[in-house]
């Protein structure tokens, strides 16, 4: 993969969430209809329980991955600040196998299916290495 587009502190330009709930640390790639993002799960992550990264954390990470895509486009197209995004709906979330654990690196692909007014419908899939961890469809309101 090429050099990330945004990482570390820079990701805060794309997202309004802050510690302890900032759940994307890297934006790797952006295409016309989607993005690839990442998160390294630190030992003190807010969503950890007994050393595992939990389902709400996965969902928040997926939502912020889509939000980072929306934020990236807002900045590129008209240099405005990244909008605040809210989850409107989650559909067909599936936890494929085991929960990730502290130290794991999540790699997530979000693909926009449609945009109607201020609502973006997208699909998301999160992997660790080659293993799918979770997937879902989501509506994000901005």
């Amino acid at each position: 993969m090429d050099k990330p587009l945004y990482k570390g502190e820079e990701i805060k330009k794309l997202l309004n969430q802050r510690a302890p709930i900032l759940m994307v640390d890297t934006l790797y790639e952006v295409s016309d209809n989607g993005a690839t993002t990442g998160l390294t799960i630190e030992a003190d992550n807010f969503f950890n329980l007994d050393g595992q990264f939990t389902e709400p954390g996965l969902i928040e990470h997926m939502a912020q991955s889509a939000s980072a895509f929306v934020g990236y486009n807002a900045i590129k197209s008209n240099s405005s600040a990244a909008p605040v995004g809210y989850i409107g709906e989650i559909k067909n979330f599936k936890l494929a196998g085991r929960l990730p654990k502290a130290g794991d690196k999540l790699l997530t692909t979000v693909t926009v299916q449609s945009v109607v007014m201020n609502i973006t419908l997208f699909t998301a899939e999160t992997k660790t290495g080659d293993t799918t961890v979770a997937s879902c469809q989501m509506k994000l309101s901005v």
């Binding site: 309004n16 969430q17 802050r18 510690a19 900032l22 807010f46 969902i59 605040v84 809210y86 989850i87």
Partner: peptide, 15 residues
């Protein structure tokens, strides 16, 4: 959690 969601604008995270 409200320190980060969102600074100065507390909204309960859906998750």
């Amino acid at each position: 959690v409200y320190k980060g969601h969102f600074p100065g604008n507390p909204i309960s995270p859906g998750v």
